[in-house]
Every structure is written in C-alpha cells, then in structure tokens.
C-alpha cells in the first residue's frame, strides 16, 4: 500500500505545493483542480528522473517549532540590522567578520534548510561549506562574540534539524 502510494506520488510535499500554487494562480474550482493534479503529478514524475529521493522526515511535530523560531529570529535580526544601518555603527567600527562553524549535519536536505534559514536571516550569510570536514564558513554582520554565534547555530537550529530529519 505504502510502496504503491510512493510509486504513484513520488514527492508528496512537492505535489501538494504545486497543486496549491496552481489553484492560487488560476482560481479555486473543480476544473482547475483536475488540471492542477495532472500537472503536479506529471511534473513530479518528470523530476524523478533526476534521481533525488524525497526528504525523509522523521519528526513532523518539530517543524512548526522550527518555523516559529526562524520567524522570531528573522524579526529580531531585522530590527538589529536596521538599527545598525540607521545609526551607522558599522561604518566607523569594523564589527563584521568571518567565522567557521563545525557542523554535525551531513545530509543534503537539512543542510539545504539550514543554508536557506541562515541566508534569509539578515545578519548571517552562508559562504562556503566543506563537506569532507563538515565546516561552514559564515559571514556575520554584527560579530561581537564568536562563541555566541556558533552556539546559536549548533544548539538552536542544528539540533532541531537533526530531530526533524535524522
């Protein structure tokens, strides 16, 4: 039963997202619903040729928690970065810098999520990742305490991501 479903719908989350996107763009009615399902299934089957497996999600409960934490952090760092730009503190004093963060994550999916989270948060930018050593080069806008940032990434995000994916 489960394998039959997997064969019919290779990427369930992507399929649902495509159907919702189609309906949002074209309008909610039965006709568009049929087209949306056909397009979403066709697109995901075509994608199967790339050979990437669907991300294995172990813990669904932790996902809303992660989203909540990320939204809260983005609001907080928006305020912080806007404050720095408006007061001009970064212009005269060099407070930004590079840090190297050792990561325990190895799977491409949680790493991709971590990359999107870190880059879309103002204040941190993902620059380079070495997969054999598991090290991440990060540029931090307001680098006052290096240990604080490494602690934040490994304890706040990485642990939750490991709960979700591994």
């Amino acid at each position: 039963m489960r394998t039959a479903f997997r064969r019919a719908v290779p990427y369930p989350i992507l399929t649902v997202s495509l159907i919702v996107m189609w309906l949002l763009l074209a309008g909610f009615n039965a006709g568009h619903g049929v087209i949306a399902v056909v397009v979403a299934l066709g697109a995901t089957h075509a994608l199967k040729a790339l050979g990437e497996a669907s991300p294995p999600i172990r813990n669904w409960v932790a996902i809303p928690k992660l989203i909540g934490i990320v939204l809260y952090d983005i609001v907080r760092s928006n305020i912080a970065v806007a404050g720095i730009i408006l007061t001009g503190r970064a212009m005269d004093k060099q407070t930004s810098g590079f840090i190297i963060v050792p990561l325990r994550l190895r799977d491409p999916f949680p790493l991709a999520v971590l990359a999107i989270v870190l880059t879309s948060t103002p204040g941190t930018a993902w620059l380079d990742y070495n997969s054999s050593r598991g090290e991440l080069l990060l540029h931090v806008f307001d680098l006052v305490d290096e240990a604080h940032w490494i602690d934040l990434i490994t304890h706040r995000y990485e642990r939750l991501l490991m709960e979700i994916f591994e």
Binding site: I74, N78, V81, A82, I85, G88, A90, M91, S96, F98, T119, S120, T121, P122, G123, T124, A125, H139, F141
Partner: peptide, 17 residues
C-alpha cells in the same frame, strides 16, 4: 552605505524577509 561587499551582502535580506 555599507563599506565592503560582505557587509553589503546582508542588506538586501532586509527587503526580502
């Protein structure tokens, strides 16, 4: 206004978040 490329890299994320 920001002085170097790497600091400027953070600025557009304000607009996009």
């Amino acid at each position: 206004r920001l002085p170097s490329f790497y600091t400027r890299l953070h600025a557009p994320t304000l607009a996009t978040s």
